[in-house]
């Protein structure tokens, strides 16, 4: 690994000031669980490393009336074990349980995971299905983007070199809403082959709103919008779910990679969309 300047930021201002100064010559180090592997493989070689892990202002889980605000430095393990999240947004705790290993979850942060933008990442699909927003801060101001619009390409995001991801805003589930994340991988700790997040809200049996997001099947997590359209406004039945599975299979064009062939992934999309919808439409969760 080449020589780097190492800066341990003590505050959000110190982060943004250093980003303004060094721009794309710098890389932000949060938990390091993705970045360190890239550094070791020399896939990235920044001149400056800005270690933000000690900025306590970016580590929090805060409930407001309709939104859960999560600081970008909150670790996967904190999400997995948080009593409020387990009760009111169990999709996130369940997803974390399936993400890498406990050692990685102890240090890895939500912000780091999202900014790494691995297309097979487990965190993005649930956040997109829930309609989460990301707050980005720079020395000149702040802006908020939908999680769905954050991912631009393989390992590329909408973040500018002078910005840091500061907060994740997750809408709480409506009373008659439910969300689940299911995934498939060879072993639990291996790379995700496919991950499907489903959010659904219902009036009795009729689907009022639905969002489906699939990870591992493209350069970014993908909304299965035709599948959603097949269900929205309809009574949620086995037949409708099968129809949605078929639509998702048609509208997503996965590429073959180390995790599986395009053909295999097409099959997985159809099956996992149905499974996710079935699990999500069971509902049965408590309102926030």
């Amino acid at each position: 690994m080449k020589d780097m300047r190492y800066i341990r930021a003590a505050s959000v201002t110190e982060i943004t000031d250093n980003l303004k100064k060094y721009g794309d010559k710098a890389k932000i180090l949060a938990g390091g669980q993705s970045l360190v592997t890239l550094l070791k493989q020399r896939l990235v070689s920044p001149n400056v490393l800005i270690d933000i892990s000690r900025v306590a202002d970016l580590n929090f889980i805060r409930k407001t009336k309709k939104t859960l605000k999560i600081g970008a430095l909150t670790t996967h393990r904190q999400i997995e074990t948080d009593p409020f999240i387990r009760e009111h947004l169990p999709i996130l705790a369940d997803m974390e349980k399936q993400l890498a290993s406990v050692q990685i979850r102890n240090l890895g942060t939500l912000g780091g995971n999202l900014c790494h933008a691995d297309p097979a990442g487990d965190l993005a699909p649930p956040l997109i299905a829930l309609g989460a927003k990301l707050k980005l801060i720079s020395a000149t101001g702040a802006r908020t983007v939908l999680a769905e619009n954050f991912f631009k390409d393989f390992f590329e995001t909408a973040i500018r070199p002078d910005e840091v991801l500061a907060e994740i805003h997750v809408p709480l589930l409506p009373y008659f809403g439910n969300a689940v994340y299911i995934k498939h991988s060879t072993r639990g700790v291996d790379t995700t082959i496919i991950g499907v997040a489903a959010f659904i809200s219902k009036d009795i049996d009729t689907c009022r709103e639905v969002r489906l997001c699939v990870g591992g099947v493209g350069s970014v997590p993908i909304r299965a919008k035709n599948a959603e359209a097949a269900i929205r406004g309809k009574a949620v039945s086995k037949k409708i779910m099968a129809e949605a599975g078929k639509k998702a299979r048609e509208e997503i064009s996965p590429v073959s990679d180390l995790q599986g062939s395009a053909e295999y992934k097409k099959e997985l999309i159809e099956v996992f969309i149905q499974r996710a919808l079935k699990a999500a439409s069971k509902g049965g969760r408590k309102g926030a």
Binding site: G32, Q33, V36, S101, V102, Q103, I104, L107, V189
Partner: peptide, 29 residues
């Protein structure tokens, strides 16, 4: 594995299991 997969390098940092091959020494300050 030196890449965070095998766990042979696990140590406890402030009581928490971490893979020391994925932790920069300076993170342990």
């Amino acid at each position: 594995c030196d890449s965070g997969a095998c766990g042979a390098c696990t140590v406890l940092m402030d009581g928490m299991a971490v893979k020391s091959c994925l932790v920069l020494a300076l993170q342990a300050e």
